[in-house]
């Protein structure tokens, strides 16, 4: 009997410690590719904010659309003015939950597959998505990575017919955020 109580208390204590841990970064990378065989179109944002709670599985990303860097000035201009309308919609966000939290051991180093479900807001349009990624736990840091695609149409991003063969209908998004424990 005593043993059971001890184990349960230990279990709850352990859970509490776990629940208190939040991970955070302001310098994550998010990049996208929307080019075709005709032309490469890619941008990278190095100031992606990511926060997640190892106890509840809540996860959030936020990004400033103006912060994407391009190799061409024209591409940057078109991206901001014509497609993303970054003056009108300066931020993109993701709010969701890790659905397989029980499979991730933040106390043990290793790479864990992660399933995330939530609402992605781009260009002022919110849409529910589900995607897989990975958490690489190394001591106190967790590297969160994900690769997924979004259809531009879903977010009301219109491509003029003149450049249709240059821009892909879906953009490949890559997330690479090295999070550390939030104190």
């Amino acid at each position: 009997m005593k043993k059971t109580i001890l184990i349960t208390t230990a279990f709850f204590l352990f859970n509490m410690v776990n629940a208190q841990k939040k991970y955070f970064t302001k310098t994550g990378n998010a990049s996208f590719r929307a080019g075709t065989a005709v032309e490469d179109i890619d941008g990278i944002n190095k100031s992606t904010t990511c926060i997640f709670d190892a106890g509840t599985g809540d996860i959030q990303f936020a990004i400033l659309v103006k912060g994407f860097e391009f190799k061409s000035a024209l591409m940057m201009e078109h991206f901001n003015e014509n497609y993303m309308e970054s003056d009108k919609y300066p931020k993109s966000t993701f709010k969701g939950k890790i659905t397989n939290l029980d499979k991730i051991n933040f106390q043990k180093d290793g790479t864990y597959p992660v399933i995330v479900k939530g609402s992605l807001e781009i260009h002022g349009v919110k849409k529910d998505i589900e995607t897989t990624g990975a958490f690489k736990v190394t001591g106190e840091t967790v590297l969160a990575t994900a690769d997924f695609s979004v259809a531009l149409e879903d977010y009301k991003i219109e491509i003029p017919s003149l450049v249709k063969d240059k821009i892909a209908k879906t953009a490949k998004i890559q997330i690479n955020c090295s999070n550390s424990v939030l104190k």
Partner: peptide
Amino acid sequence: KCTGKLMDVVLNK
């Protein structure tokens, strides 16, 4: 270059 504010104000480049 100022790109806006999330929690912090962010400058890039």
